[in-house]
Every structure is written in structure tokens, then in C-alpha cells.
């Protein structure tokens, strides 16, 4: 279980995360939010890539707030696949074994589940966007993380590919039964993937009963300022 309590983060005077609390059990929790609302920053803090100003992060009741990323046992799937370009697909997926994580047998199973058997000897640059996403997910899952953090991993893909991949990803993630925190700005992605939903608006996290309701809250929050810029905003007021 992942538990976030009273998390805050500022960059200079700009408060990006405002007192966020969240509990994620063995489910896929989708956080919907506009670009720049702080959802990626929240994931990076949970992964240990960024430090928070306040708050606590507990993974399976273990306080990991002060631990570096390598000691948290979280899986992080970034927006771009960010595969290791100098390594083959096989070496990418087996990377965690170098650090004594994961197991050979599980990796073979993942490769089969994500249908990447035929590209194992290729270099990442030779893969399509869809395959890069599959490999990125396999690489992370191979390390047997206790929590999965996914930062819009499908946002750069074509809609048709996305619609095909999401059910496959959901099947794999549900089979593992670990907490998944998935952030996106895409309603259809949230609908197809999530079990529970939240929305983030200017660094404030709120729960919602459904993806549609989360999206509705975001829509309501969009002001003239966001749509038309400062000049129109002033004009309308």
C-alpha cells in the first residue's frame, strides 16, 4: 500500500504541491490534471527523484520519505519511454538484475505478457512508440516494485495504438496486484485504465467518484485567464 500524507513542494515562491494526502491500495489510481498542475512533480517526489518540503510517504507501512530512489522499491515509468539507448531491449528489461532485483523467470513471463519476444535483440531506437512503451513497462515491472508510478506513459502515442495498449497494460498491472499511481490529462485513458480517480488542480488533490467527475472538476476550474491569457481575462472582468 502507498500512503502519502500532507505532501508539499515549492519551486522558489511557487507552491506546486499543496498538502496532498492519498492512499492507494492494490488498485489503479488515476490522477487527472492539466499540464503543469503538479501531478508529475508528485510522482517524482514519491519516486525519490525530487525531495518534498513537507509530508510523509509510506510504502507498505515503511517510511521512505528520506530514502533515495534506489532504496524505495518503486517502479517509475516516465512520459517518454526513456529506454537506455546503448542497450538492447533484452538488456533494458534485464537491467534490474544487475542490482540483484527481479527474477529471470518473471522476466520471461513479462516478455510474453507484453508481447515483446520478437524485438528483444533490437536497439530501442529501432522500435515504434508503442513497442517502446511496452518495453518501458516491462523494464520497470521486471524489478518487482512494491508500487508503480506512471507519468503519462502513453501520451505521445497515436489514439488507435493507445486504445489497443491500455487494456493490455491494465491486464498486466491488475495481475501483479500492486498499487499503481497513474497520472494523465487524458479522460479516455483514465476511463479505460483506472479503478479509482482523483483530480489535481493547481497542486491540490481531490477524490472523485469517476473519471468523468474528476474531469468535470478540472473543466470547472479552467478560468478565462487559462483560456484567453491575461489581457482577455482583464477585459472580461
Amino acid at each position: 500500500m502507498l500512503k502519502i500524507a500532507n505532501l508539499s513542494k515549492s519551486f522558489g515562491t511557487h507552491k506546486v504541491i499543496k498538502n496532498v494526502s492519498l492512499t492507494v491500495g492494490s488498485e489503479i489510481r488515476v490522477v487527472l490534471g492539466l499540464n503543469g498542475c503538479g501531478k508529475s512533480t508528485m510522482l517524482k517526489i514519491v519516486a525519490g527523484i525530487l525531495a518534498s518540503d513537507n509530508g510523509k510517504i509510506l510504502i507498505d507501512k515503511r517510511d521512505v520519505t528520506a530514502l533515495p530512489p534506489e532504496d524505495r522499491h518503486v517502479g517509475y515509468v516516465p512520459q517518454q519511454a526513456s529506454l537506455f539507448k546503448h542497450l538492447s531491449v533484452r538488456e533494458n528489461i534485464r537491467y534490474c538484475l544487475r542490482n540483484g532485483r527481479g527474477a529471470e523467470a518473471d522476466i520471461d513471463q513479462l516478455v510474453e505478457m507484453l508481447k515483446i519476444e520478437n524485438v528483444l535483440d533490437k536497439k530501442p531506437e529501432a522500435l515504434s512508440g508503442g513497442f517502446q512503451s511496452r518495453v518501458s513497462l516491462a523494464r520497470t515491472l521486471a524489478s518487482q516494485p512494491h508500487v508503480m508510478l506512471m507519468d503519462e506513459p502513453l501520451s505521445d502515442l497515436d489514439l488507435a495504438i493507445k486504445e489497443k495498449l491500455i487494456p493490455e497494460f491494465r491486464k498486466v498491472l491488475k495481475k501483479l496486484g500492486i498499487p499503481v499511481l497513474y497520472v494523465t490529462h487524458d479522460l479516455s485513458e483514465a476511463q479505460l485504465l483506472g479503478d479509482r480517480f482523483s483530480c489535481m488542480i493547481e497542486g491540490v488533490l481531490s477524490d472523485a467518484d469517476s473519471a468523468e467527475k474528476a474531469f468535470g472538476l478540472i473543466r470547472e476550474s479552467i478560468s478565462d485567464y487559462d483560456l484567453h491569457g491575461p489581457a482577455q481575462h482583464q477585459l472580461r472582468n
Binding site: 527523484i49 534506489e70 518503486v74 517502479g75 517509475y76 517518454q80 526513456s82 529506454l83
Partner: peptide, 17 residues
């Protein structure tokens, strides 16, 4: 690509590794 470094860290790499 700094994200690839972030991913390597979550896969168990220390900063040196």
C-alpha cells in the same frame, strides 16, 4: 535524457552506478 537516469535510480542504481 535525465528521465533515463531517474529510471535507473528506481531500478536500484546508486548515483555512481
Amino acid at each position: 535524457d535525465l528521465e533515463s537516469i531517474a529510471v535507473a535510480r528506481t531500478l536500484g542504481d546508486t548515483p555512481t552506478k
